[in-house]
Amino acid sequence: MGYPTTIDGILGIWTALALMLFVYSYPLFKENQLFRFAEHFFIGLSLAIAAIISIQTTIRLAITPLMAGKIYYIIPILLGFMMYFILHRDYRWISRYPIAILVGSSIGLGMRGTIIPNILSQIIATITPPKAGAVALSWFNFVYIGIGTILAVMYFLLTFEHRGPLLYPTRLGRWIIMIGLGAYYGNTVLFRMAMLSGRAQFLLQVLGLVPF
């Protein structure tokens, strides 16, 4: 993709740049009307797109089958409309029925699905030693992960106060968690900076300083 050559393309990238600068005028300068303008523009736009996609998908997923003879699809459609009673104080209870189906199915699926990957597999992966002939570092990692996981889980034993025999294991567990959060933070910085670099690149592209 090169630099736009059509009027709508050129107008488009400059509009995009202007909107970006309106938003960044808040952190780079201070709160102002242009920032508010762009903020409300984005909210209005996002809501409209969500509403359009909602209508479009409802037609494909529910209305079309209903028209094709699946009369019972009237039930989920009615349940979908019942969700909107959540906005009315006196009739909010009506929305509890569709919520019951949403929450019930999510919890049921979550409960049945979580045991193997999140409990059993994690325990198996923790207690599986390195293969024969593994280097010393692999054994160190195995011990670190094994003991570290036990200590970190102990930190979440909130039924007991963390003192007496639990004092040092839970403190070590907290350190293990801090190492994990530190690595997570390092990856978070990467994510945020990659996103921001995309914007910096876009600014330079629109100004013609780097190619599109």
Binding site: Y24, S197, A200, L204, L209
Partner: peptide
């Protein structure tokens, strides 16, 4: 923001 731009140039 300025530092992010330098490597692109």
């Amino acid at each position: 923001f300025i530092l992010l731009m330098i490597p692109f140039i």
